[in-house]
């Protein structure tokens, strides 16, 4: 299973980025291989409009099974993600990536209703 985190850094102990559309890094953790891939998403900051749809199209390309983030996506991004069928969990904006992962495993995060 692939889990995607929105983060401000590239490591397990990096803080989560509460924003979805303008998230600085997308970290993709594969639970089987125990490997973490890092996608630098910081260029999205140059986008005048549509950061949400831009990031969600990148995410759609990765096709993770689960997304863990902070505030949840905006309306446009949410409709893209809904169409991909991914599950999304919010409320991890103030945590570190590892804490967010543990919180999800312990059912402490809220599932986002598309």
């Amino acid at each position: 299973m692939n889990i995607l985190f929105t983060a401000k850094g590239k490591e397990w102990d990096s803080p989560m980025d509460p924003r979805f559309g303008r998230a600085m890094y997308l970290l993709v953790y594969n639970t089987v291989s125990d490997k973490m891939d890092v996608i630098d998403n910081s260029a999205v900051d140059e986008e005048a409009h549509g950061a949400g749809t831009k990031t969600s199209s990148v995410v759609a390309g990765i096709a993770p099974d689960i997304i863990i983030t902070g505030n949840g996506p905006g309306g446009n991004a949410a409709s893209v993600l809904a169409a991909t069928g991914v599950k999304l969990y919010t409320g991890a904006g103030e945590m570190k990536v590892e804490e967010a992962y543990n919180a999800w495993k312990n059912n402490l995060l809220e599932e986002f209703k598309f």
Partner: peptide, 8 residues
């Protein structure tokens, strides 16, 4: 403008 998105 990121107004067009292709998914699968």
């Amino acid at each position: 403008f990121n107004a067009v998105v292709r998914i699968a």
